[in-house]
Design a protein around this nucleic acid. Sequence first.
DNA 1: CCCGGAGAGTTGATGCGTCAACTCTAGGTC
DNA 2: GACCTAGAGTTGACGCATCAACTCTCCGGG
Lengths: 163, 163
Amino acid sequence: MTETRSLDPEEWEFWDTWMRAQRLLIRELERGLQRDCDVSKAEFSVLVTLMRAGGGREMRVGELSESLDWDKSRVSHQLTRMEKRGFVERTQYGADGRRTGVGLTAEGRRAAQGALLVHGGNIRRHFLDSLTPEQTSVIRAWSEQAVERLERHRSEAPGDDAA
Amino acid sequence: MTETRSLDPEEWEFWDTWMRAQRLLIRELERGLQRDCDVSKAEFSVLVTLMRAGGGREMRVGELSESLDWDKSRVSHQLTRMEKRGFVERTQYGADGRRTGVGLTAEGRRAAQGALLVHGGNIRRHFLDSLTPEQTSVIRAWSEQAVERLERHRSEAPGDDAA
DNA sequence: CCCGGAGAGTTGATGCGTCAACTCTAGGTC
DNA sequence: GACCTAGAGTTGACGCATCAACTCTCCGGG
């Protein structure tokens, strides 16, 4: 094991600043999405995932869950809320063996398109445009490496719901 | 306005990977905190803030709110939950003019100390240790610049509760 | 046929986060 | 003294996130 010592004040400050930057960035983007499109971050994720899978096609809850890397329960709750708003609908297929498929409504497709445009622009303005080429490449590398490492870490850990 | 065009697929992928890395990192740290210390991220923030302000001293809700950069309402709700758990207590001072001060209980101090150790170690293992010196300095620079920019952005925007 | 287990999906409980509405006190101004 | 505003803090409602428990179907073995 690595030593049990906690962090130096300087390390804490680095960590705090980093967390703070993320929080502010995400908060800003989420507010923009809400303000300009009346769509939440969670709704956005679902809309886009369904859209990218082919706007007309239907997905299974399990596919959504996998694709979003969300707990199935979370997906189900989210779909319930979004069904109320008229963005998605759960359709039964198979009269006896019922698999519940999930599809976008016309309203959902419309919202997805608008949100993609607006949100993309906001990401560009608040994030991409603020990076120097060097920062871009370093951050990209870190992200990839972190995802790789953390996913490995999770899959090595005991019982987990990821496929 | 900058152009209305959304992002290229490559830019979306960069963004997705970056968000994913953050989510995984935060999820991992939060789970560790919960598992090893039975303390949530929100509880941790409050405990540490009170601790750093001097374990014995009391803070006002407004100070906490400012220091955490949380909405006052959020602080109040969080304090209510933590009071139930016995981590903090709200104490009245001044018989007539009542300002509600907030302080740690002995239990709260104990939890804060444990959590600081454990969480610090996890941050080191999952984040700090995974960075090359170059990544450290680039990410530090980006964080500082992003915080500066986003805070300026917010304060220029209309009505906001930050002081 | 009945049982038992695995997979898919849902539900309920509870904590977190945000917004809007509310209470209470203190201080001014007339 | 009456009114009015500003600041501090709380409350309620609602959406998001997670965990555990549940339903239902399918499937394989006895």
